[in-house]
Simulated assay, not measured.
Amino acid sequence: MTTEDNARHAEKMAKVKAARDRMMADRQGEKGLIIVHTGKGKGKSSSGFGMILRCIAHEMPCAVVQFIKGAWDTGERRLLTGHFGDLCQFHAMGEGFTWETQDKARDIAAARAGWEKAKELIRDPKIRMVLLDEINIALRYDYLDSAEVVAFLRDEKPEMTHVVLTGRNAPPELIELADLVTEMEVVKHPFRDGIKAQPGVEF
């Protein structure tokens, strides 16, 4: 790059920094967020567990309630229970996807038990983040009442507690309530080419 190129670049970046500084000066508030990761693409639970690991790194007590994958032996479950049990409670409440159990009453009972545990954890003021993994699946199949979940989060969640809800087909009322919503889209997926779920990638 020439001297003129460097000078133009420096001038451009200075303007960008000034604009960013002005924007950040207006954003000093903090609150406990309701965070939704939904959509057909991969990465919803992975992102939620990434946030849990950030909490652990900051020594912030946190918790996980799994609504569907409870029967699975996953890497995140091994890691969190084996190494970080003092900071992260892990409750695997599900019994697998509904097409595996083929027992709606049992699925509803498992989802209700998971939700009761979730409410207990969210109400605990010492816990800073609660991940409700695949709860949107339970809502989609009407194992839980979405109006009840939304009302609880709106009315009873402590002010500084973050709650992360993952799974496809998040209901519109939950999306409306949430502070942060990300929809994962599928561009390519190896499953379509006959590749099964693999350790370290999917679980």
Score class of each variant (00 low, 15 high):
residue 1 M to G: 11
residue 3 T to C: 13
residue 4 E to F: 08
residue 5 D to H: 09
residue 7 A to V: 14
residue 8 R to I: 08
residue 9 H to Y: 09
residue 10 A to Y: 15
residue 12 K to R: 15
residue 16 V to D: 06
residue 16 V to E: 12
residue 20 R to V: 13
residue 21 D to G: 08
residue 22 R to N: 12
residue 27 R to Q: 13
residue 27 R to F: 11
residue 28 Q to E: 11
residue 28 Q to R: 12
residue 29 G to K: 14
residue 30 E to L: 13
residue 30 E to Q: 14
residue 32 G to L: 06
residue 35 I to D: 00
residue 35 I to A: 05
residue 36 V to R: 00
residue 36 V to T: 02
residue 36 V to E: 00
residue 36 V to S: 01
residue 37 H to M: 10
residue 39 G to F: 01
residue 40 K to V: 08
residue 41 G to D: 10
residue 42 K to W: 05
residue 43 G to C: 07
residue 45 S to P: 14
residue 49 F to G: 00
residue 50 G to A: 14
residue 50 G to V: 14
residue 52 I to Y: 01
residue 54 R to E: 10
residue 58 H to V: 06
residue 62 C to F: 03
residue 62 C to Q: 04
residue 63 A to P: 01
residue 63 A to N: 05
residue 68 I to Y: 02
residue 70 G to L: 04
residue 74 T to F: 06
residue 74 T to E: 06
residue 75 G to F: 11
residue 76 E to V: 10
residue 78 R to Q: 11
residue 79 L to T: 11
residue 80 L to F: 14
residue 82 G to V: 07
residue 83 H to S: 13
residue 85 G to H: 06
residue 87 L to H: 08
residue 87 L to M: 09
residue 91 H to Y: 11
residue 91 H to P: 02
residue 93 M to N: 01
residue 93 M to P: 00
residue 98 T to C: 11
residue 99 W to R: 04
residue 100 E to I: 04
residue 101 T to W: 02
residue 106 R to F: 06
residue 106 R to M: 15
residue 110 A to W: 00
residue 110 A to V: 03
residue 111 A to W: 02
residue 113 A to M: 09
residue 113 A to C: 11
residue 114 G to A: 13
residue 114 G to K: 01
residue 115 W to D: 02
residue 116 E to D: 13
residue 116 E to K: 04
residue 117 K to C: 09
residue 118 A to W: 00
residue 119 K to N: 02
residue 119 K to P: 03
residue 119 K to L: 03
residue 119 K to W: 01
residue 120 E to R: 03
residue 122 I to G: 00
residue 122 I to W: 00
residue 123 R to H: 06
residue 123 R to K: 07
residue 124 D to H: 03
residue 124 D to E: 04
residue 125 P to S: 07
residue 128 R to Q: 09
residue 130 V to T: 08
residue 132 L to E: 00
residue 132 L to G: 01
residue 132 L to A: 02
residue 136 N to W: 01
residue 136 N to Q: 08
residue 139 L to G: 00
residue 140 R to A: 12
residue 142 D to C: 09
residue 143 Y to E: 08
residue 146 S to K: 01
residue 150 V to K: 03
residue 156 E to H: 05
residue 158 P to L: 06
residue 160 M to L: 14
residue 161 T to K: 01
residue 162 H to V: 03
residue 167 G to Q: 03
residue 167 G to M: 05
residue 168 R to H: 11
residue 170 A to S: 14
residue 172 P to M: 10
residue 174 L to G: 03
residue 175 I to D: 03
residue 175 I to Q: 09
residue 176 E to S: 15
residue 180 L to K: 07
residue 182 T to C: 12
residue 182 T to V: 11
residue 184 M to Q: 10
residue 184 M to C: 12
residue 186 V to W: 02
residue 186 V to N: 07
residue 187 V to S: 06
residue 189 H to I: 12
residue 192 R to C: 08
residue 192 R to V: 04
residue 193 D to T: 10
residue 194 G to E: 13
residue 194 G to I: 07
residue 195 I to E: 11
residue 197 A to W: 05
residue 198 Q to E: 12
residue 198 Q to C: 09
residue 201 V to R: 08
residue 201 V to T: 07
residue 202 E to R: 06
residue 203 F to K: 03
